[in-house]
Design a protein around this nucleic acid. Structure first.
Length: 859
DNA sequence: GTCTATTACTGGC
DNA sequence: ATCCGACACATTCGG
DNA sequence: CCGAATGTGTCGGATGCCAGTAATAGAC
C-alpha cells in the first residue's frame, strides 16, 4: 500500500501502460475493499519499474523524517499558513481559512466525480488510467481508516488526493455559503503550502545544488496523469517555488523545459529534429531495430513511451556503471546543442547528440526528452499555464533577493493590478490573479522568459512592468480573433456597440517595428523575425510614415501578394512561394503590399490601452497610403442595430476583393489591444464558417492513418478522394483529421472495418508519399468542408486538368462535416465538379490566365 | 566528383 | 489553419 | 436559499495543405 504514497507529487501510482493486471481487477465494493485492497495494491506495484520503486523508497524515507517538520516553515507570505493534516497540526487558523479549505475540498470532490463520469467515454488509454487512479484513491480511503499514520502522510504528500476522504467525513457540510469566487483559488494555494516543507527540500532538493531533470519529470509525470487544470497549475507552482527556494538560477531552465522552448521565439532557433531522427536515435540507443520501434510507435501512439519501454528493457539486459544523473541544465543545453548543429553530416551528429542524453536518462526521463524533441510535451500544460504557475510561485515564494512588496508601496504610478497585488490586505486568491495578469502582460509584451525571470528574481512583481514592457524591436504577441458561425452571432456579440468591419486579407500577418535607433523589423504571427523574408516591407512602411516624422512604432498589418498591374490581390498560395531569405539587392518575384490595420506603439508610447478608434486614428494620422506599397485595411464602421444586410454585403465585397472574409472589432468599449488573448472583441467571419456556405464536397475514404497521442487506438486521419468518372477511379483530394467528435472517430472506424483492404485497391490515384496505414475499398461517402481549393503536387483531384499535367487539386483546411449514408461512392463529388469549384473561386477567376501557373509572370 | 532528385523539417495559413 | 473536449467560472433554474 | 443545470470562455492537443530549405541519397 505504500505505493499510493509513492510519488512525491502525491499522485497515486499509475500502473504503466504495459500493465493491464491492475486495471483488470474490478473495483471492489466498499466492504470488500479492506480485504482485497492490499492484494490489489501489490498487483499494481509489482510490475512497476525501477523508477517507481525509487519513488516508493523515497516516500518512505520522507515519511520517517516527516514528523515534526513543517510548522516552522514560513513561505513568502503569512496568509498562506494553512495546515496540512487537519488534526495533527494545531495551528491557529482564521475562520476564513477554514472555510476556504472546506470549500476547496468540496470542489475537489466534485471534480473527482465529474472526472470519473466524463472519462468513461473514449480514449481507452485515458480510461484505463482513470480507473486505476480512481481505484487508487479508493484504496487510499481504506488505508486511511486503517492506519492513522498513513492518513496523515497521505494528506501531507498528496493533499489533493486525500481531500476526498476528508470531505466525505463531515467537514463539507458545515461550510458556510459565504465563500465566493476566488476562495477556491486561494484555498488551493494555501493547500499548496502543505506540499512544501523544509524537510522535503532537504531530502530531495539540496540547496544550491543544480536541480535534477528527474525532478521536473516527476512533476510532468504527475501532470500527465490528470486533467484538472488547477491541480496541474498548482503542481507547477510547487515545482517553481521549490526551485526558487533552493536554486533560483535553474528556474529559467525549468520554465524553458516546461514550455518546451529553447529560446525566445524571435530568435528563430529550430531543433531541426523530427520523428524520423528520433526513431533513429531511440533505435540505436536501445539497440533495437527501427521497424520494431516504428511498429511500437504506431501501436502506442507516443514515441516517448516507446523510448521509455525500450530503454527499461534494455537496462535489465545490458548493465554498466550508473551514468551521471541528468541535470536540468544538461537537458536544456543538449536541446540547444541539437538545434545548433547544421551542415554536412549534421543529421548523424544530431542523432548522436540525442543518443548521448538518452543514454544518461532514466525511462521516464527518456519519455519527456523524446516528447520534448518532438515539440509536443503533451502533458496538458503549455506556455500560458506555465505563466500562471510562475506568477503564483513568485507571490507565494518571494525570491530571496526581493524585498517584500510592502516596502515598495508608496509612490510610483502603479496599475490597478499592481496596486492590488501590493496590498497584502487583499485576499490571496485575488492577489494571485493580479500577479498572473502582471506576468501575462509582461510576457506578452516582451516574450522573453529570461527577461521576465531575471527581473522577477530581483524586483517585486509589481515592478515587473517597469522592466518588461512593449519595446519596438521586440515582438508583441499579436491579438487574435475568434471564428464566428453567422452574422447573427456577430451581432449578438456586438450587442449595440459601435464596431468596424475590416477585410480579412489572405496573406501573412506582419508586425512592423521601428526602433528608436531607426531600424525597421518585421515579425510573423508567431513572433519569428521575417525581416529577411520581406525586405521591401521596411522601406514601404518608412515611406508611408516619413512625412509625419515618427521616431518609433509598432504596426500591425498583413502582407499580401499583389499584382500592381491589375491592381488585384493574389492568393496566399502565391505569396508563400517567396524565398525565405533574400540576398541583398535581390528583387522578389512576387510583389507585395502592406495592408495596415492597427498601431500598438508610437513615438515612445504604448498605445495598447487605448481604444481601437484612437489607435486607428493615430495610425491614419501618422501613416499615409503609398501607391502599390502601403495602404490600410478596407473597413466599414457601423453601429449594431440588428441589421445584417450591411455586413453581408460587405462580406461579399471582401470575398470579391480576394479576401478571406471579415474581421469585426469593437471600436470603443473593450477595444484595447490585448496580446494573444482570443478576445471576443475581434471576430473573424469567413464564408466557409457559415452554414450552407463555403465549399462542401462529398468524398470517399480511401485509407487511414493510425492516430497518435490522444487518438491512439483510432484512426487519426483519413485519406479522402473524389470520383473520376472518366476513368472510374478515385483521386485523392485531401487528408482529413479534424471535425469529427470522439464518438464519430470511434464509429467511423467501426463502420469501415469491413472495408479494410489488404492492399491498395485498383483505381486509386494516390501519391506514394501519402501511403496510408490501412486501405479501404470504396464504401462510404463523407461530407467535407473546405475553405478553398488549390493546386497540389501531392493530391490528384482532376489530375492534369487544372492547367498543369503534374498537379491535381487539393483542399485547404478540410474538415469532416458528416456521413452521407444516402450516397453511394459513385455519387461522390466527381473530378469535373472539383475542377469547376476550383475555377469558380474568385481568387482564380481574377487571375488573368486560365490557369494560375502563369500567375507569377504578372508583372 | 558533381549534379539532381528525394526526403525531412519548419512554419505560413 | 479547424475543430473538439475538458475545465473553470458565471448565470439561471427548480425545488 | 441552495444545489443542479446550462452557458461561455480558455486552454490544450489532435489533425489539415503547401511552400522553401538543407541535407542526403542516387545518378552519371
Amino acid at each position: 500500500m505504500v505505493n499510493t504514497l509513492a510519488s512525491f507529487w502525491g499522485k497515486p501510482q499509475k500502473a504503466k501502460s504495459s500493465d493491464k493486471k491492475a486495471e483488470a481487477a474490478p473495483k471492489p465494493t466498499d466492504d470488500k475493499i479492506s480485504e482485497e485492497e492490499p492484494i490489489a495494491a501489490e498487483k499494481v506495484l509489482q510490475p512497476v519499474k525501477e523508477s517507481a520503486k525509487k519513488e516508493v523508497s523515497k516516500a518512505v524515507k520522507r515519511k520517517a523524517a516527516e514528523d515534526d517538520s513543517d510548522e516552522e516553515f514560513e513561505f513568502g507570505e503569512e496568509e498562506a499558513g494553512n495546515r496540512g493534516g487537519g488534526k495533527r497540526r494545531v495551528l491557529e487558523e482564521s475562520e476564513d481559512e477554514e472555510k476556504e479549505e472546506e470549500e476547496e475540498m468540496k470542489v475537489e470532490e466534485e471534480k473527482r466525480v465529474e472526472k470519473g463520469k466524463s472519462k468513461i467515454q473514449l480514449m481507452k488509454e485515458k480510461r484505463e488510467k482513470m480507473k486505476e487512479e480512481k481505484k487508487d484513491v479508493e484504496m487510499k480511503d481504506v488505508e486511511k481508516e486503517e492506519e492513522e499514520e498513513e492518513e496523515e502522510e497521505g494528506k501531507k504528500l498528496a493533499s489533493v488526493f486525500t481531500s476526498k476522504n476528508v470531505s466525505s467525513s463531515s467537514t463539507t457540510k458545515t461550510s458556510g455559503g459565504v465563500v465566493k469566487k476566488s476562495t477556491t483559488l486561494a484555498g488551493k494555494m494555501t493547500k499548496d503550502e502543505n506540499l512544501l516543507s523544509e524537510e522535503d527540500m532537504k531530502k530531495d532538493w539540496k540547496p544550491e545544488a543544480p536541480i535534477l531533470y528527474q525532478h521536473v519529470c516527476e512533476a510532468f509525470e504527475h501532470i500527465d496523469g490528470i486533467s484538472a487544470r488547477l491541480e496541474i497549475q498548482q503542481t507547477m507552482t510547487t515545482l517553481f517555488r521549490k526551485i526558487i527556494r533552493t536554486n533560483p538560477s535553474d528556474l529559467i531552465n525549468t520554465v524553458y523545459l516546461a514550455c518546451n522552448d529553447v529560446a525566445p521565439s524571435y530568435e528563430c532557433v529550430e531543433l531541426g529534429v523530427g520523428d524520423s531522427f528520433l526513431i533513429k536515435a531511440v533505435t540505436e540507443t536501445a539497440g533495437s531495430n527501427s521497424n520494431t520501434i516504428k511498429a511500437k510507435y504506431k501501436e502506442l501512439g507516443d514515441l516517448g513511451t516507446v523510448a521509455m519501454s525500450a530503454k527499461s528493457k534494455q537496462k535489465t539486459l545490458g548493465f554498466g556503471m550508473k551514468p551521471k544523473p541528468l541535470l536540468l541544465k544538461d537537458v536544456l543545453q543538449s536541446f540547444r546543442k541539437v538545434a545548433a548543429i547544421s551542415g554536412n553530416k549534421s543529421q548523424a551528429v544530431k542523432v548522436q547528440e540525442i543518443k548521448k542524453i538518452l543514454v544518461r536518462a532514466s525511462g521516464q526521463e527518456c519519455k519527456f526528452i523524446i516528447r520534448g524533441l518532438q515539440g509536443k510535451l503533451r502533458i496538458g500544460l503549455a506556455r500560458s499555464s506555465v505563466i500562471v504557475a510562475l506568477a503564483h510561485a513568485f507571490v507565494l515564494s518571494v525570491p530571496k533577493g526581493v524585498k517584500p512588496m510592502e516596502k515598495w508601496v508608496e509612490g510610483g504610478n502603479y496599475s490597478d493590478n499592481e496596486k492590488f497585488l501590493m496590498d497584502l490586505k487583499n485576499p490571496l486568491g485575488e492577489r494571485l490573479e493580479a500577479a498572473v495578469n502582471i506576468v501575462k502582460k509582461g510576457f506578452s509584451e516582451c516574450s522573453n522568459f529570461d527577461s521576465i525571470i531575471d527581473t522577477a528574481l530581483v524586483h517585486p512583481l509589481c515592478d515587473l512592468s517597469q522592466h518588461c514592457h512593449l519595446t519596438p524591436g521586440t515582438p508583441v504577441e499579436p491579438m487574435l480573433a475568434k471564428p464566428t458561425k453567422s452574422v447573427q452571432e456577430v451581432l449578438k456579440r456586438l450587442n449595440g456597440q459601435r464596431f468596424t468591419c475590416e477585410y480579412k486579407y489572405d496573406g501573412e500577418r506582419v508586425q512592423v517595428h521601428l526602433t528608436e535607433d531607426g531600424k525597421v523589423k518585421c515579425f510573423s504571427r508567431n513572433l519569428l523575425n521575417t525581416s529577411d523574408k520581406f525586405p521591401e516591407v521596411p522601406p514601404f512602411v518608412r515611406e508611408a510614415c516619413e512625412s509625419s516624422g515618427v521616431t518609433s512604432f509598432v504596426l500591425d498589418a498583413e502582407v499580401v501578394a499583389y499584382n500592381a498591374v491589375k491592381d488585384i490581390l493574389v492568393p496566399f498560395q502565391v505569396l508563400s512561394t517567396r524565398k525565405r531569405e533574400m540576398a541583398e539587392g535581390e528583387e522578389a518575384e512576387v510583389k507585395v503590399i502592406v495592408q495596415a490595420f492597427d498601431l500598438m506603439f508610437l513615438n515612445g508610447q504604448s498605445l495598447m490601452a487605448k481604444s481601437l478608434s484612437e489607435r486607428r486614428e493615430l495610425m491614419k494620422k501618422n501613416f499615409k497610403v503609398v501607391q502599390n506599397k502601403f495602404r490600410f485595411a478596407v473597413s466599414l464602421d457601423a453601429q449594431e442595430d440588428g441589421d445584417t444586410t450591411a455586413i453581408e454585403e460587405f462580406l461579399d465585397a471582401a470575398i470579391k476583393g480576394q479576401c478571406e472574409g471579415l474581421m469585426v472589432k469593437t471600436l470603443d468599449a473593450n477595444s484595447q489591444y490585448e496580446p494573444s488573448k482570443r478576445s471576443l472583441n475581434w471576430l473573424k467571419l469567413k464564408k466557409d464558417y457559415l452554414e450552407g456556405m463555403g465549399d462542401s464536397v462529398d468524398l470517399v475514404p480511401l485509407g487511414a492513418y493510425y492516430g497518435k497521442g490522444k487518438r491512439t487506438g483510432f484512426y487519426g486521419a483519413y485519406l479522402l478522394g473524389c470520383y473520376n468518372e472518366e476513368a472510374d477511379e478515385y483521386q485523392s483530394v485531401c487528408k482529413c483529421g479534424t471535425g469529427f467528435s470522439d464518438d464519430a472517430l470511434q464509429s467511423l472506424m467501426k463502420g469501415l472495418e469491413e472495408a479494410v483492404s489488404e492492399s491498395k485497391p485498383s483505381g486509386y490515384v494516390v501519391s506514394d508519399t501519402l501511403e496510408p496505414d490501412v486501405w479501404f475499398s470504396p464504401s462510404q461517402v463523407w461530407e467535407v468542408k473546405a475553405a478553398d481549393l488549390s493546386l497540389s503536387s501531392t493530391h490528384k483531384g482532376a489530375l492534369g486538368k487544372a492547367g498543369n499535367p503534374e498537379r491535381g487539386i487539393g483542399l485547404r483546411f478540410p474538415r469532416f462535416e458528416r456521413l452521407r449514408p444516402d450516397k453511394k461512392c459513385e455519387q461522390a463529388t466527381n473530378a469535373e465538379q472539383i475542377l469547376d469549384m476550383y475555377y469558380n473561386q474568385d481568387s482564380v477567376k481574377g487571375q488573368g490566365g486560365d490557369n494560375d501557373d502563369d500567375d507569377d509572370d504578372l508583372l
